[in-house]
Design a protein around this nucleic acid. Structure first.
Length: 260
DNA sequence: ATGTCGATACTTTATCGA
């Protein structure tokens, strides 16, 4: 089962390239982030026409996540527990039945956290701690779990073309890296890093000319539970998507293939 | 400090978030 994630930076602004990528990549499951629209504005019919069931957790202007699947979606759960006052749409989970079994998939849009320091950075760390607590709970089911999306965290120096340029940024603070490592220490694996240990692989380039200089960072991650890791066949970054359209997202898709 | 996007609003330009 091919399971992909992509921060599209507005699904309405990105509909044409998104449909083109889905048609060519043909994933079984797609997690989208930064929809920047409410659920009723999501172009559901366009994806249904390609054979996808759509679960959407939208929000006006900001955030918004979705899970699209060619297989049945069950147990669809929006919101990350732990703070009922949190109105930001950054988490959507679903159970998906594949030909060989089930997999639990979450579409994640973690807070950016800039400017650092400040209340937005505090919110980022609190949100990531809520994600860690939930990730720990999920392990008790001993099922394949895929926690994928835009974590807004650069894990290591080798995940940035210019690490020194990020030293004052929320995405590269030690507390941010620690928050990701704490989730991994529960038993989750960064699937891309496990299969590709070398530097130079990025998922985000800003719109300020970074693509032309390959000044990228790797911040979109696929975290796999042990039961999912056992079934991992491949994990890739669809870098070409940045150059495939005239109005690309600042992120490109990442995906894994699981024997499920 | 700056660059560029996308969405929004008491638009047609400024603001915010990234």
């Amino acid at each position: 089962m091919k399971i992909a994630s992509w921060n599209v930076n507005s699904i309405r602004a990105r509909l044409e390239p998104a449909l083109a990528w889905v048609k060519s990549a043909n994933p079984d499951v797609v997690c989208l982030q930064e929809l920047k629209c409410q659920e009723e504005q999501f172009p559901r019919e366009a994806f249904e026409a390609l054979g996808y069931n759509c679960a959407v957790h939208g929000q006006k202007t900001y955030n918004g996540v979705a899970v699209l699947s060619k297989h049945p979606l069950e147990d669809v759960t929006p919101r990350l527990k732990g703070d009922d006052a949190d109105e930001q749409s950054r988490y959507l989970e679903a159970l998906i039945s594949g030909p060989k079994g089930v997999v639990r998939v979450a579409s994640i849009y973690a807070p950016n956290g800039n400017p650092f320091p400040g209340p937005k950075f505090d919110y980022k760390l609190a949100w990531l701690e809520r994600l860690r607590a939930h990730a720990a709970d999920l392990l008790r089911n001993e099922e394949p779990v895929v926690l994928m999306g835009d974590y807004n965290i650069i894990p290591q120096d080798k995940d940035a073309h210019n690490p020194k340029g990020w030293l004052k940024d929320a995405l590269f603070q030690p507390e941010s890296k620690d928050a990701l490592r704490r989730i991994e220490n529960l038993g989750y694996t960064d699937a891309f890093r496990a299969l590709h240990p070398e530097s130079g692989h990025y998922t985000f380039w800003d719109y300020f000319g970074s693509w032309e200089r390959d000044n990228g960072i790797r911040i979109d991650h696929i975290l796999l539970s042990p039961q999912a890791m056992d079934r991992l066949n491949a994990c890739k970054i669809d870098r070409h998507v940045r150059g495939d359209s005239e109005k690309p997202s600042d992120h490109v898709p990442v995906w894994c293939d699981l024997d499920i």
